[in-house]
Amino acid sequence: MKYLSNVTTLALDKEKCIGCGMCEIVCPHAVFSVVDGKAFITDRDACMECGACARNCPVEAITLDSGVGCATGLINGMFGGGGACCGEKTCCSK
């Protein structure tokens, strides 16, 4: 299942990448693959902006505006309650 196309804020700085492979390991949607010591974004639209890749890249080659894609959380956030998502009462129970 794919969500909307061309919205993700994911960006990769190839110059900085040292090919450690962490991004490929942590991504739950197989967005990255590392070939010949460099990471490539192979499936951009599959990115859910969880931030796992950026957090685990040792050289900060990956940047993105991470957050939880949850309308309930965003609505609660708008009304000042609980911030964006994952409150005890919101839905995420993965």
Binding site: M1, K2, Y3, L4, V7, T8, T9, P28, H29, A46, C47, M48, E49, D65, S66, G67, V68, G69, C70, A71, T72, G73, L74, I75, A84, C85, T90, C91, C92, S93, K94
Partner: peptide
């Protein structure tokens, strides 16, 4: 349906904001 986005494992925050 829109609120169900938070329960899924593939919706991005930028996408949900655009949808909303």
């Amino acid at each position: 349906a829109m609120n169900f986005t938070g329960c899924t494992t593939f919706t991005s925050q930028s996408g949900v904001k655009r949808e909303m």
